Structures are given as C-alpha cells and as structure tokens.
Computed example of a mutant assay.
Amino acid sequence: MVKSQGDAELEAGKALVEATGDLSLHQRILGDIEDRILSGEWQPGFRIPFEVDLAEQYKCSRMTVNKALTQLAKTGLIERRRKSGSYVTQPRAQSAVLEIRDIKLEVQSLGLPYDYSLMAKTKRRSNADDRLRLGLTSPVSILDVTCRHFAGRRPFCLEERLINLNAVPEAEAESFEETAPGPWLLNRVPWSAAEHTIRAASADDAVAAALGIAPGAACLTVERRTWSNGSYITHVRLIYPGDRHALVANFTPSQPK
C-alpha cells in the first residue's frame, strides 16, 4: 500500500512527539517501578505488569516500556524471564567472613535505602551465659542492646549485642536511638582481635516476628566477639533470614615453609 504524503506527515509527527517525550516517559516509568520495589510495595517474586499493560497505562509505545525494564534488569532490581514476564528479584547480601563491616554499607551496596531501629537497651549484671559469650570469669556490668536493621521496608538483620561496661563505660550514656552500636563502637574503641562463629539456625517466635519471617524459617547467625589488649569489649549476634544473605571469604594458598 502506497502512503499518501498526508499519511507520511502524520506518522512523522507522531514519531516526533513520541521521540521528544520518550526520555521523560522512560524516566517516569523507571522511577515509578524503582519506587515500588525499594519501598517494599512490590516484594521479591512479584510479577511486574506486562509491557503491553504498562504501555497502555502510560500511553506510550512498548519500546519505551521495554527500555525502562531493560535498564531495571541491568541494575539487578528485576529479572526478565522468557515467555513469562518480569519479576522483582531477591536481593542477596554478601559480607566478608573475616571483616567487621558496617551493616548500613551492606544494605546500601544492594542499592536499597537503609534504616535502623532500637528495640531494647538494658543495663544489668552479667549472668553465666553473658560471661560465656564475653569470655569473662567474673560478673561485670553489661549493656544488653537489641536492634533491627532494615533494607527498604523489610527487616534485614536482627542484632543482639552485649557490651562490657568495664571496658567501655561511656556506652552507658549513649542512647543508641539514632546510631547502631556497631559503628559507634568502631569509631570509639580500638579493637585488637576478633572471633567469628557462624551457624545455621531456625527462627524462634521472637526472631521470626522481628525479621518478618515464618517461625522455623532458616536463618544465618553470625556471632562475633572483639577484645582489645586482653579486655573483651563486646559480643554481637547478627541474625539474617537465610535466603537473603551469603558469607564470602577471600584467601590465598598457604606458602610452603
């Protein structure tokens, strides 16, 4: 079929309108989907509306929608499956086994907003379990702190920490309402050695409620105690949902003697 000059001009005009509006529409679609994922409205595994539906919603071409989804897939926020559609991916954090890392940086490395909340803070006399965790031989005053770290709106990690007030007496006056105990300690108390213990565990009712997972769900537990010049500073138990975290260790072959 031969197109008339009028038809050609009309199509050219439509193409120009879409081309000039393509960037803003692309950014709008991109931003809207990012916001829904990062806010937790669209959870991991959620199927994103099909291209044709998004094109109808935004009154644009499927090509514009495709560009936005392709960019989201490159950033790792969504996964595109052939003949099935696009799905929100499950972020999987990685932390180095032999490093003391800031949880805030772990969350931000996933491209997710970080938040923190203090659940409980109590000064008390250490009991037998506390002394075992802190490597102490006699009772001392300790600070018992429980808090949560968030990635977007989802709980990322539950932190249960004991602080030896004999070693860090200034911790008693710190509220820990705005700052998590980990970075606060790292910025104020030099440590000379640390010990990690890594376990798999099932979430009890309290842990499940704190992390927003089902009771009995698999969790990854990292326990660490640090000391300085022979004095134990703190013991922390970090509990992660098992399907959202991995531990990484870097090493080299040992050298023959």
Rank of each mutant, 00 (worst) to 15 (best):
2 V>R: 13
2 V>G: 09
10 L>Q: 10
11 E>N: 12
11 E>H: 10
14 K>V: 14
16 L>F: 06
16 L>P: 11
17 V>Q: 04
23 L>E: 13
25 L>V: 05
30 L>W: 03
31 G>W: 03
32 D>I: 06
34 E>Y: 07
35 D>T: 12
39 S>C: 11
41 E>F: 03
45 G>P: 01
47 R>P: 12
48 I>N: 02
50 F>C: 08
50 F>K: 13
51 E>A: 14
52 V>E: 15
52 V>M: 12
53 D>Q: 12
53 D>V: 14
55 A>Q: 02
56 E>M: 13
57 Q>D: 08
63 M>W: 08
64 T>W: 13
64 T>H: 05
66 N>I: 08
67 K>Y: 04
71 Q>E: 15
73 A>S: 09
75 T>E: 12
76 G>N: 04
76 G>C: 03
76 G>H: 03
77 L>C: 01
78 I>V: 15
83 K>V: 08
83 K>R: 15
86 S>Y: 00
87 Y>I: 00
92 R>M: 04
92 R>Y: 05
92 R>Q: 15
98 L>N: 13
100 I>P: 01
103 I>F: 02
107 V>D: 00
108 Q>M: 05
109 S>L: 08
109 S>E: 05
110 L>P: 01
111 G>D: 06
114 Y>K: 01
115 D>G: 13
119 M>G: 09
120 A>I: 09
121 K>T: 05
121 K>I: 08
123 K>P: 06
124 R>C: 08
125 R>T: 14
126 S>E: 04
128 A>C: 09
131 R>T: 08
134 L>P: 00
134 L>W: 01
135 G>F: 02
135 G>A: 07
140 V>M: 04
142 I>N: 02
146 T>M: 12
146 T>I: 09
147 C>L: 14
150 F>H: 11
153 R>M: 07
154 R>K: 13
156 F>G: 00
157 C>F: 01
158 L>H: 06
158 L>I: 10
160 E>S: 10
161 R>T: 11
161 R>H: 06
162 L>W: 04
166 N>F: 02
167 A>W: 04
171 A>F: 10
178 E>L: 13
182 G>S: 11
184 W>C: 07
185 L>K: 09
188 R>D: 07
189 V>S: 04
189 V>A: 03
189 V>T: 14
190 P>H: 13
193 A>K: 10
194 A>H: 14
199 R>K: 14
201 A>S: 13
212 G>C: 10
213 I>Y: 03
215 P>H: 05
217 A>W: 05
217 A>K: 09
220 L>K: 00
223 E>V: 07
227 W>E: 12
228 S>H: 11
228 S>R: 10
231 S>V: 14
232 Y>F: 06
233 I>N: 06
233 I>C: 04
238 L>Q: 12
240 Y>T: 00
240 Y>W: 02
241 P>N: 02
242 G>S: 05
244 R>V: 02
245 H>I: 06
245 H>G: 00
248 V>I: 15
248 V>E: 12
248 V>G: 03
250 N>R: 12
